[in-house]
Amino acid sequence: MYILLTTAYSVSDNLLEVQIRHTLHTAHGILPMEVTFALPKAGIMALTGPSGAGKTTLLKQIAGLIMPESGSITFNGEPWLNTPSNVHLPAQARNIGFVFQDYALFPHLTVLGNLLFALPRGSKPDIAHELLEITGLTGLAQRKPHEISGGQQQRVALARALVRQPDLLLMDEPFAALDPDMRYQLQDLLLRLRRQHSFSAIVVTHNVGEIFRLSDHVAVMDSGKLLRFGTPSEIYLNEKEPAGEMLIYGEVLTCERSDDQLTVNAWIENRVRELKLPLHLEPQLAPGSAFTMRYSANPAQIRIVGG
């Protein structure tokens, strides 16, 4: 099941319209991917769901890095992809910025060199220096990526993605590897940069706090399908239409077995929480393993959907 939202808005009002069919090759096998959504206005959209759901693939398809088997992508009325009429704008021609999960900084270039690389030929380097200033990297301009911390590398990746002043910034779990303080600071930086440079963004994230802080829309994906689409409140807080199912991501700390259930201590959303789970899940809950859990009001329906 997926939700067709295009009908709710007239075509011209939408910032981004995506309709894609593809085949996903995941760790769990081959899955048909089918995603249709329309983003009604500029802002930040969060893309969430368990690993293997197709989030990164979707992001790269929007960027033009992966060619979908069929479908169309329209941004601000401009066709980026239309397989029936053989339109496929290469990544270079889509005015996007992309922040990779591993940052993808060029190891042989300095921080400044990474930003200057992104400048279109013949343009002035002012924007690169300005972005270094805003992101607090001026003092590190001559360092190589391996000489700075993870948080600083993330800032470089963000600054570099903005050098071309993109209309759309795509971010693949940009803050996942950072500690909560650094994560908060960088969310702040992103919001500040967005106010100054007025781009739209799609952010892949697992962190519900981050979704509320950053985004005005959330798309929830699973197994190649878009399950839900709405504002963060509609998705997570609306009692009348309960999320029914909520996805929880965590890491197992301890797992103890009693006669009728498992008592699991898990690290979820930066806290230790105790979960009572059915016995049959034990093999998937070894201490140290990561899990994604589909949770509903009825604990009997807890189902682990992937690490």
Binding site: P90, A91, I96, F98, F100, L105, P120, R160, R164
Partner: peptide
Amino acid sequence: SLREASYTLGKG
């Protein structure tokens, strides 16, 4: 991602 980053930064 190095190649992809370069493409998204407009390089052929």
